[in-house]
């Protein structure tokens, strides 16, 4: 067992977990934050994406112990009360169907837009499609996900 402590969605968390516990297992099984999903075992589908110290990471490919001291944000903590602009954009643009990939998709999208806006780079449709390489959706054909991210980016820029 390893003692770990980190801040998850603004709350300090401390626990003793088996050393081989993945961050996603810690979130889902120990903290019962089941919005973060597991869709594959090869680090490709992106259903497990969370933010660690402000960066999108695959929580299925990180030991919980490696997140020691980190600030972790999951889909449940992306917004306080009101929807995050990217969450709203996914709903308004029908960017989800079964909803399983959606939390990871939204977390990746929020990270993507934040990075592009910080760097002052234009987030074109082509760039969005390329940036989504690590998030697989089987329902939407990505058409409306791309629209949602364009809309979410505009909403985030508007503040």
């Amino acid at each position: 067992m390893t003692e770990i402590s980190m801040t998850v969605n603004g709350k300090r968390t401390r626990a003793a977990v088996p050393d081989n516990t993945l961050l996603v297992e810690f979130l889902r099984e120990h903290l019962r934050l089941t919005g973060t999903h597991v869709g594959c075992d090869t680090s490709q589908c992106g259903a497990c994406v969370v933010h660690v110290d402000g960066r999108a990471m695959k929580s299925c490919t990180m030991l919980a112990a490696s997140a020691e001291g980190a600030e972790v944000t999951t889909i449940e903590g992306l917004s306080n009360g009101e929807l995050h602009p990217m969450q709203a954009a996914f709903k308004e643009n029908h960017g989800l169907q079964c909803g399983f990939c959606t939390p990871g998709m939204i977390m990746s999208a929020a990270d993507m837009v934040a990075r592009y806006q910080a760097a002052g780079r234009e987030l074109t449709e082509k760039a969005i499609r390329h940036e989504l390489e690590g998030n697989i959706c089987r329902c939407t054909g990505y058409h409306n996900i791309v629209r949602a991210i364009q809309d979410g980016a505009a909403k985030m820029a508007a503040g």
Binding site: S43, Q44, G46, V49, V52, R55, A56, M57, K58, T61, M62, S108, D111, M112, R115, E131, E133, G134, N135
Partner: peptide, 9 residues
């Protein structure tokens, strides 16, 4: 290399 989340780690 990989995708954005992979590149962060």
């Amino acid at each position: 290399i990989g995708d954005p989340a992979v590149r962060h780690q």
